[in-house]
Structures are given as C-alpha cells and as structure tokens.
Design a protein around this nucleic acid. Structure first.
Lengths: 205, 205
DNA sequence: TTACTTTTTAACAGAATTGTTAAAATACTA
DNA sequence: TAGTATTTTAACAATTCTGTTAAAAAGTAA
C-alpha cells in the first residue's frame, strides 16, 4: 500500500464525512454525498471505511477528542490571574467552536445518549476542574461568592457556544446577513470577557 | 366524521410526532415509531397525514408559531420598567423552552435553511423590536450604552436557550444527574435576571 | 516494461422505509 | 338494532440506501 496517497484519500474522505455529518447528522447523511464531496466513488468509500457506522464513529470520536481537552485547562498556569485565564479560555473556546460544530455533538448525543457516556469516560475525572477552580477563587475573595460555580459554568459555556451554533437564527433575527453576523461576532469574545469579569469581580461592599 | 374522536386521534398523532421529531429529527424519525407512540397503526397515520413530509411541516410550523410571538413582546407594556420587563421575558422564555425544543428548530433549519425564511416571513418585521427597545433605554440613560444592543440580544438569548438544550451535556459535565440538573435550573432564571440587570444598569461614573 | 497498488465502473443483493389498498373488525350514534 | 365512521389487519409496490463484488482501468515504482 502506498501510504501517502492512501492517507490523502483517507483524509479527503474524513473531511467530507465530517462536513456531511455536521450538516445533516448521522441519519440525514448519505454515503453518496460523502463520496461526491471527497471526489471519489462509493465503492472506494467502503474500501476505506467498511460501514457508515464505523465512519461516523471515527468522526464523532475525533470531534470529542478535540473538544474535551479544552474543558480541563482550569488547573493549568495557576499563577495567571483569573481574569486573564477566563479571557483566554473564552477566546480559545470561541475560536475553536468556529471550526468545530457543537451542534453536531449535541444532536448525536440526543439521538443516542450512550455516545456521551461511552466516549468520555476517560475524561470524566477532569470535568470538575472548573468548579474547583472557581470555588477556590471565591474562598480567596477574588470573585463574588453569591453565585453557584455551576451557574457560572453554565453561563460561560452558554455565552461561548450558543452564538455560534445559532448563528443562522441570530443573523436572521437581527436582520443582518450571515456575513455581517460573522463580522459582528469578531468583537464578541472581548466583550463578553470584559462583561463577565465585571460581573464576577469581588464586590467590596 | 365524528369530530371529537378524530381530533383526539389527530392530537395523539401530533403529540407523538412532535416527540419523535424532537428526539430524532426529520431524518431519524420513523413513521412506525410515531404510530407506536400514538398507539395506532401506520395505515391510520397515513389516513390522517398523507405523508411524513406533511406531518413534519405541520409540527415545524406549529413549533415556530408558538415560538415567534415570544420575540415580539418588547413593545408591549411600555410603562413597565425595563428591569421587570427583562425579568419577565427571561422567566417566560425559559419556562417556554422547557416544553418547546429549540434544538429541534435549529437542527431542521440547518438541515434545510429555507425552512427559516419561508416560514417566518410574516414575523420578520417584528424582529427588530428588541434592538429598538434597548437602543431607547440607552438614549434614556437607563442602561449602559457601551454594549451594542445586538450583543445584548445574543447574550440574553444564549443564556436562556442553551442551558436547556444542552442539559444532557451540562449535567454530565457538572457530574450531577439530569434530575439534579433540572433542580439546579429552577433557580437559574432568577439568577441570570438579576445578574443581567446588574450588568446592564447605567453606571453613573 | 513489469508488477503492484489504487481507483473506477457497473451491477447486484438485501434491508429498511414510505406510502397504498381492500377487506375485516370495531366503535359509535340514531 | 341498523347504519355510519373509525380503526385494524395484512399484504404489497416502489423507492432509497447500504454494503458487496468482480473485473477493468489508471496510476506508481522498480
């Protein structure tokens, strides 16, 4: 087997598959559409990935493996102040989400909840780092202590994730083009970083 | 035709269809599963709704028709202070979203973007009420003027919508059961109302 | 050129799904 | 009870999609 051509073909297939699965979901995706996008034929598709199921699993796993590490950064660079940490997280996360569809993951998890449990067991332990970190910030009186850290978690993630996955709807609701919406959103990470910092900062009185 | 039994059967079908479409999406939904849920047989399903397509259209339209009115409440009760207005919106919206899947709409719109345009034309005009209202609040120096009203729109909607549609993932990430997450979320509308009010309130200095 | 690998072509089997139909069974109403 | 409307049963046609196969074609490297 010539590894080089195989890999580029395999990569073409994976890129195409990812795109189609993200757009249409597992049930709506068609092997034909994937092979069209990869500019190969359907026989070759099955030659590289035996079944649609296996191909999906690969795409889904890779998506999760890209995603999970982002969630366990809260115990790194502990000397960094929380404002910077937060800001950096938000910018990194939003940048990441521009090329990684959260909706894809969510849709498939809702279709088949086992996907979440089976594929993330090894990351499970790391998931409480956020809450630990923010509870600590409260103890140290660096941030306000009257908001449950789990709410803070939900708030930050909602503010990062939803504007991107709901882009079509938001741009329609705001009566601007998707392009204009994208442009509007370039300033968004800065804005919410600053707002969240204002909001969370410990209030002296 | 005996209208009463028909309506109850039709309603059973619609309820079942809605549930299945919300869970599986159009492509993943099976007529068999819908008729099972409605406790009737597949022949009767087609007797009431000729095709899957037509049934879906009905479900989707109804979902949009429930949804859209919520977005055009910003020019009602103008004597009410903006804090109350905001709080009322948030509570109403979140309550609504508990029984109306935003993910369903989003998934189908992404699958087939025409759905959004074709089905909401008549509501399109009303969609700028939010921005108009908040721009006015800024003029009157009731809220801070350094945040684009469109960002405020995105922020409020993200904070309302995402925690519910991402419930499975959040409860997993926070390592609590879905039930515990629901309980946690009962306090959520109050919290974000208050936080948003703090954040938006006009700052004297 | 030769040997080998990759890719295409074209055909097909099998399964799942949608939608239809006719006749029988059941439920309802006058 | 008789007549009407609703629902079930069971079978079927048509289509779409997945996955397989064998042989041919094209590409690559020695």
């Amino acid at each position: 087997m010539n590894t080089e051509t195989s890999i580029s073909t395999e990569e073409a297939i994976l890129m195409a598959a990812r795109k189609v699965f993200e757009l249409k979901g597992f049930d709506g995706a068609r092997m034909q559409e994937i092979s069209d996008r990869a500019r190969i034929n359907r026989a070759l598709l099955h030659y590289y990935f035996r079944t649609k199921e296996k191909m999906f699993e690969r795409i889904f796993d890779e998506a999760l493996e890209r995603f999970m590490p982002l969630l366990s950064t809260w115990d790194q660079d502990l000397e960094e102040c929380w404002e910077w940490k937060l800001k950096r997280f938000i910018i990194t996360f939003i940048t990441f989400l521009k090329t990684n569809s959260m909706l894809f993951l969510l849709r498939e998890i809702i279709r088949k909840p086992e996907l979440l449990v089976s594929k993330t067991e090894k990351h499970r332990k790391k998931l409480n780092k956020f809450v630990l970190y923010f509870d600590r910030l409260k103890q140290e009186r660096l941030i306000r202590s009257d908001v449950d850290s789990r709410y803070i978690y939900v708030i930050i993630h909602s503010l990062c994730s939803f504007p991107l996955m709901n882009g079509i709807v938001f741009s329609y609701s705001l009566r601007i083009s998707p392009k204009e919406y994208d442009e509007l959103m370039t300033g968004y990470p800065e804005i919410i970083s600053d707002l969240l910092i204002q909001l969370l900062k410990y209030q002296k009185n």
